[in-house]
Design a protein around this nucleic acid. Structure first.
Lengths: 192, 192
DNA sequence: CGTCGAATTGATGTCATTCAACTACAGTGG
DNA sequence: CCACTGTAGTTGAATGACATCAATTCGACG
C-alpha cells in the first residue's frame, strides 16, 4: 500500500530508498469501507489523506440538508481540509468513502519533517497548494460562466475514468445540479 | 499615500518607523483613472496592488464576452493574480479601476525582502493567502447552495459600504446574475 | 428472489435570462 | 449653459434552464 505512494513520490521528486523508509514511518495506512466517514463537519482536521486504492470525497451540507461535493479523491490524489488543519479551526467538510478505500493519513509532523528529509518536497507541496487553489478558481468561474451541460462535458473530459466509477447523483452534486437534471442532460447528449 | 499602508501594517504587525522606511522604498505609488486597465488577460502578473483610495476590481471575460468579477479591492485591500505571479504563467484576469484610485504596487522582491525586514510579516502573508482561499471557497459553496437573493443579501451584509459605491451591474456580475435580475431582486426586497 | 437505492421519465413550477422599451442622469462638446 | 449622447437602471413579456414532485424502471446485492 505504501508502494503506491512511493511510486507517486518518485514521479514527483528525486528520492532515495532510505528517504522513502523515513517517510513511510510518518504515514499511517488505513482502510475505509464504502460510506465510512473519516471527517465530520465542525471537527478540526488533523490529517491529510492520500488515496492508494478506491475513492474518497469531501462535501458540505447546506441548511436545506443538500450535499455539495467539493472534491473527489481517487487513487494518487490527496484530500483533506487544509484550511481547518492550518488554522486549527473547526471545519465545514465531511470526508467519506465513495468506495472501499485504502489510504494513508499524514499528520502535521509529516509536513514539518518531509522537507527536512527531502528538501525538494517543499516545491512539490507548494505546487499542490497552487493546484488546489487553481481548481477552486476554475470551478468558481465555470459556475459563473457555463451551463450545466458545459460543466458536465468538462467534468467527463477532465475525469473520464471517474465519470464511470462514481454514482451519477454524486456527479450531479459536484456539478451543482439535481440527479434528474443530469439524467436529462446525458439523454440529450446521447441524441447528439 | 504610503501613510495608509503604514497604518495598515501597524494594525497587523509590530513594526518600527525605520522598518517602514525600508518597506516604503519597495512600494511604487500610482494613480489610475476610472476605467484604467492595470492588468490584461494573458499577461504575466508581476505585481500585487494595495489600494489606498478608490477601488480596483479583477474579472474574467468568458467566451460569450460576459464579465465575471472575481474580486473588488477598495481601500486597504490587496488585489492581484497571485497564481499567475507565482507560477509565472499568463493570467486570466483583467484588473481595472472602478473609481479613480490611488494604489501601491509591490513586485516580487517586496515579498522576498519583507520577511527579512519584519520576520512577523511571514505570518501575515500566510494569513492573507488563507483568507483569499477561504473567500473563494465560500463563494463556490454559496453558488452551489444559495439563491441569487441570498447571495445578494450576503453581499450587502459583508460589504455594506461597497454595495453603495459600486454600480449595480458590477454587483450583479460578482453575484453571477444579470443586472436586470438584480434590479428585480432589489425591488422585491424593498416590498419586504 | 426480493428489496432498496439509483436512474429515468413525465408533468409542472420557479427562477433567472433575454430582448426590448423607456427613464434618469452624467459626461461631452458646442 | 444647453443640447446631445451614452450608460445605468427599471420594467414588461416571452423564453429558457433547471428544480420539484411523482411514478416507474433498472440494477446491485443480501
Amino acid at each position: 500500500m505504501f508502494e503506491v505512494f512511493a511510486t507517486y513520490l518518485k514521479s514527483k521528486i528525486e528520492i532515495s530508498d532510505p528517504q522513502l523508509r523515513e517517510i513511510e514511518a510518518l504515514c499511517k495506512p488505513h482502510r475505509a469501507e464504502k460510506g465510512e466517514v473519516l471527517l465530520k463537519v465542525n471537527e478540526i482536521c488533523k490529517a491529510v489523506f492520500f488515496v492508494t486504492h478506491g475513492c474518497l470525497r469531501s462535501y458540505v451540507v447546506d441548511k436545506k440538508k443538500r450535499e455539495h461535493i467539493i472534491q473527489f479523491a481517487p487513487e494518487n490524489w490527496w484530500i483533506s481540509e487544509r484550511l481547518s488543519m492550518m488554522s486549527k479551526e473547526p471545519g465545514m467538510y465531511f470526508i467519506d468513502a465513495v468506495e472501499d478505500t485504502d489510504y494513508l493519513s499524514m499528520e502535521e509532523d509529516f509536513f514539518q519533517k518531509l522537507p527536512e528529509i527531502v528538501p525538494a518536497s517543499k516545491a512539490m507541496n507548494d505546487r499542490l497548494q497552487l493546484n488546489s487553489f487553481r481548481a477552486f478558481r476554475k470551478r468558481l468561474i465555470s459556475l459563473l460562466s457555463d451551463t450545466a451541460e458545459d460543466r458536465y462535458l468538462n467534468f467527463i473530459q477532465t475525469h473520464p475514468s471517474l465519470a464511470l466509477r462514481i454514482p451519477q447523483k454524486m456527479i450531479a452534486s459536484y456539478l451543482g445540479i439535481t440527479p434528474e437534471s443530469l439524467s436529462r442532460i446525458r439523454k440529450s447528449l446521447s441524441h447528439q
